[in-house]
Each structure stands twice: as structure tokens, then as C-alpha cells.
Design a protein around this nucleic acid. Structure first.
Lengths: 255, 255
DNA sequence: ATCATTTTTTGAATCAGATTCATTATCGCT
DNA sequence: AGCGATAATGAATCTGATTCAAAAAATGAT
């Protein structure tokens, strides 16, 4: 067994090296220009070895994506451990999401690329399951906030499951990311900073779901005050250049 | 120049033939298996001729996508001509969107595929502008409903532009499409029919924005009644198998 | 109608880059 | 050291998009 163990460990280590190499190359030359033989070359392994780890290029990219989910979860976990109301926590999750989107734009490009039917066809079942499993804690965490809101009575009971309730909120965030990343769209329609819009609509949706305490969305200052609180209490270590995106645009000078 | 005119016309006609051929092949063998030489072959032209029309495969696919926007607009236009309140009209637009998504799943796959940064790099500027321009009437129509709602006082004025108000609604729809199309996601989290969820959250968001008249989202019957009205008044010609998706799931047996 | 000129079409050849697999090297063991 | 077993290698293969030199067709002046 010892032999097998050692081998497995070495194998896992090498996989890490390969993924790091791929990440490095993408960050230097872009996703579009990533070539398998260059990854192998960069890591001083042969192409064949690369294919010992990944069944295809797409498979490798999904592994890269899956790796990052941990970082995302780290940001989310801060929110879960935070002593605050369920509504604040949700806003905290959205802030975490936006911070992550800014810190790791590659993650979103990969996600977008790999979830395309055309591309996802080339991914092995095992790798897909691994990705699903890695997402699980994240979904659980999100669901946990909703379950607790129901338990506390912040949110009126309905016939819907917590996940169904959450799906709208999730979809809204996902949709804003899509708009934000769509080439030329933001400029064409002068949408300003998409993430400022996100918070506005997020609160509107929460209000519409009857999530207590309600928030006056016409009061831009109140919305911003909550964001500031989230940032100072949870994300004070994140560079301001990243958290800046959160702060407004369209209602900068409202009362 | 009669000669030039005639040539241009013939050229445009051939482009149509090529696009139809591509569409036919995709519908038979899937987007994944589309090959340029097969398109040429199928239409009895040479590969070189194909490239006279499209600068790359992706360019051709965007042309195919752009072509369909007209169909989408057709569904949307019915709603714009409909004599109803602004809130009903918005729901009508969402219904149109969902019908289109079911009728032309290829549209969404293409949209998803082509908006990927990796892929969109291979598209000519001219084609991109053409696609943008084709989208314009659709955006205008959507914006028109919001402008009128503001004018009628159905929606409280805020510092936001109509498009900014609409962006949340649009993002929600876009996000639900994304979830609906993500491989395995709906099953993994038992979300049921995504489009039933969409209407629930859509009304919640409208309520949260203060869009009059408010709708009691706990009353599943009322939500469904409005959908039925939209379908019978605007989309009675659409096969029930398509409009079925609209009708719920999670609150089927609520009071 | 003929022919020189321009424009269009053609498809075999090229090219890029992912993937394979026969060969070579390494390992663990006796 | 020698013997399988296991892993690594990278040149060769394969797929499929794209190009471009040559052939064909259209134009229009004589």
C-alpha cells in the first residue's frame, strides 16, 4: 500500500503543478491562446503525461474551475459565520460574489465557456461530478441562510422549498454577471456599473418576497450604508479598488 | 447600376440558402457536429464560396443567430400591440420570451456559445454590429413598456433610467434561462420547472419595485390566471405543448 | 461573335492544434 | 543484475477550419 499511496500522492502533486502551469499560461496569454503542448512544455512534462490527468482540454479547464470554487467558498464562509440578520447575510453573500467576480474574472469566463453545451460535451463524467460536489457546500451555505430566515420568521412561509426561493435571487445575480460580461452591451445601453444595479434589484426582489426587515430602495444612502457595513465588518482586507465596484453610480447624488 | 444590384441580390439570396443549410444540418446533427465543408456540400457550393460570406465559422453562427432575432421580435410585437396594463404587458413579454426559448432552443445555445469571450474573438466587427442593430428594436420595445409605465404612474419615478430599471427584470429572465440550460443543475437541486419559478420571482421583483397594481404572489391561482389570459389573448396559436411549461409545478395545489 | 479583362468560384493544399499510441524509460521486487 | 509491470515520452496521426493559386464565368468594348 505504501507504494501505491506514495504514487497517488505524487500524482496529485503533479496534477497541481499542471493546473498551476495552465493557470499561469492563461493569465499571461489568455484563455483563447492556451495550447496543451505549451502547458506540458511549461511544466516540463510531455503531452502524453498531461493526458494521463485530463481526458481533454475542456476536462482540464473544468478541473481548473473546480479548484477555484474553494476560494469562492472561503469568501462565502465569512458571511455564514457572521452574526447578523438573514437579510444582511444575503447581501453579504452577494458582496462576496461580486468581490470574487472581480478578483477572479477567469473563473467566470471558464464557467461561461464550459457550461456551453457544445463545449461541455467533451468533459468526462467523473470530472463533472467532482465539480458538482465541489459546488455542494456553496449551495448548502446559501440554502442555510434561507432556511434560517424561514425559521426566524424573516420570510413568510410558502409552498416553495428554500432552494426554489433562492433560485430567483441566484438567477438575478447570475443574470447580472452575464450582462456585465457581455461584450459591448453595457456601453451600448449605458447601464453604468452593473453591480450597483444588482443591489438595487436584489433589495427590490427581497422586499417583493416579503423578506423582513424591508428596505426602502428609494433611499440610496441606506442601501449604501449596509454595503459599507458588510465591507468593513467582513471584507476589510480586500483592496478598496475591488470593493469600489459595489458603490453606486446611478444614484450617487440622491438625498 | 443594375448589374451591381442584381449581383447583390443574388449574393443575399445565396447567403440565405447557406444559412438555411447550416440550420438544417445543425437541427439534424447538432451544433457540435457542424462542419463547414458539410454546409458547403449540402448547399452545392464550395467551401471557398462559404468563406466569401462569412469570415469564420463563428461569424456564420452569429449570422444564424441574428436571423432569428426577427422571429423573437415578432412574438414580442404582439405584446406591444396588446391593449393592456403595463404590468400585464411585461408578463406578456416574459411569456413571449419563454415561448421563444422553447420553440428555438438553438437560439439560446448559440447565444450562450457565441457570447463566450473565447469564441466571440473570431467574429468580424461588421457582423457584431449587425447583431447589435438587430437587437435594437427588441430593446426599444422593452424600454417602451417601462417608459409608458412611468408615464402612467404605474411605477414610481426614481433616479434610474428606464433601461436601468429594466435591467433587473432582464437579468432575472436571463439568469433563469442560464439555470434552465445548465447541464444537470435542475435535477441536482430539484428545482422543478424553472419557468414557473420565473413568474413567481418576476412578480416579486415587480412588487418590490412598486409596480402597480401589486400582485399577491402567495395566490398561485391569480398568477396562473394572468398567464392564462396572456396565452388566450395573444398566443392562442402556439401549441399547448409549448405553453404548458408556463404552468407551474411547485404550487399546483395551493388554494 | 470574339477576345481581353475583371470578377467569382473552386477544392486541393495548408495549417493549427488536440489527441493517440508504439516505443522507451523507470520502478519494485527477488 | 534481471524480470515483469507501470509510467512517460513525443513523433505521428487525425480532425477540421481556412487559404489561395488556378479555372471558370461574366462583362463589355470592338
Amino acid at each position: 500500500m505504501s507504494t501505491t499511496d506514495r504514487r497517488q500522492k505524487a500524482f496529485a502533486e503533479r496534477e497541481q503543478i499542471l493546473l498551476d502551469g495552465a493557470h499561469y499560461l492563461i493569465s499571461r496569454e489568455g484563455l483563447l491562446n492556451l495550447q496543451m503542448h505549451r502547458v506540458a512544455q511549461h511544466c516540463d512534462y510531455s503531452v502524453g503525461t498531461l493526458y494521463q490527468h485530463f481526458s481533454s482540454k475542456e476536462d482540464m479547464l473544468l478541473a481548473l474551475l473546480t479548484e477555484r470554487i474553494g476560494d469562492r467558498l472561503g469568501l462565502f464562509a465569512r458571511v455564514a459565520d457572521w452574526d447578523a440578520g438573514s437579510r444582511e447575510q444575503l447581501v453579504g453573500l452577494v458582496v462576496a460574489d461580486v468581490i470574487f467576480a472581480r478578483q477572479q474574472p477567469l473563473f467566470f469566463h471558464l464557467q461561461q465557456y464550459l457550461s456551453t453545451q457544445v463545449i461541455s460535451a467533451a468533459i468526462s463524467e467523473a470530472r463533472r461530478e467532482q465539480a458538482m460536489a465541489a459546488h455542494k457546500p456553496l449551495a448548502d451555505l446559501f440554502q442555510g441562510v434561507i432556511v434560517e430566515a424561514l425559521a426566524r420568521g424573516d420570510l413568510p412561509a410558502s409552498g416553495m422549498t428554500p432552494i426554489q426561493i433562492g433560485s430567483g435571487l441566484w438567477a438575478l445575480g447570475e443574470g447580472i454577471h452575464t450582462l456585465a460580461h457581455a461584450e459591448g452591451l453595457m456601453d451600448a445601453y449605458q447601464l453604468g456599473r452593473p453591480y450597483a444595479l444588482l443591489f438595487h434589484h436584489f433589495h427590490a426582489l427581497l422586499n417583493g418576497l416579503g423578506w423582513q426587515p424591508l428596505c426602502d430602495i428609494t433611499d440610496g444612502r441606506a442601501v449604501r450604508a449596509l454595503l459599507t457595513r458588510v465591507v468593513t465588518e467582513l471584507f476589510s482586507d480586500i483592496p478598496p479598488s475591488v470593493t469600489d465596484t459595489l458603490f453606486t453610480d446611478f444614484d450617487q447624488d440622491s438625498p
